[in-house]
Amino acid sequence: MKRNLLVVLILILGITLMLWSGVSAYRERRIALQQAEANHVALVPDNAAGSNPNTVAAADADPDSPAAQGLLDLRGKLAPGFTLKTPDGKKVSLADYKGKAILVNFWATWCAPCKLEMPWLIDLQQRYAAQGFTVLGISEDDPPFAQVSTFAQKMGVNYPVLIGDDTVGHAYGGVDGLPTSYYIGRDGKIVVETAGLVSKSEIEDNIKKILATKGS
């Protein structure tokens, strides 16, 4: 009888210890969760143009900075290289245009402001190509890509149009809102970046800036 009582007591003690450890582990988890929530900082700005959480800190300082436009600040850095295909399957690399001033323009057929700036880009391509300038239009459309070709032909596009992929957009900091443009100097470095539609004169000024750069 005594032995039975001893066994029961030991078991009760064991259960009590287990309950205590369970409760204390639960409390620790709760404290850890509360600390994690307290340390969480929302870095995403609530703007219509999309956002890049890496760029928010500088957004307040300069309203015209890439950060304020929701872009990663790539100015002064070498433009990320890429090799993409045209809608008819021809491969085109950024490296093919070494020494030239390049406007990399992300666009899509469904993007009305892109359609609005397209005639400006066509005109500027025509006027500045002889000085070593080119536009590279990177389409962010989903398949089928035949519509990209049809659209570009209909608009009279006179510069290479390429089919973008996630890798390129990611390399340029995650292109979200369209149009987004990167102006690359003759030395391969990004000079200006813009998100959203800007005036034709602003585009032209930026082209003049990259034409004035020297090759490396």
Partner: peptide, 14 residues
Amino acid sequence: YQACDNQMRVCNPP
């Protein structure tokens, strides 16, 4: 859907 801002400055992806 596919959204753009009313200033027609930026279009967001679908």
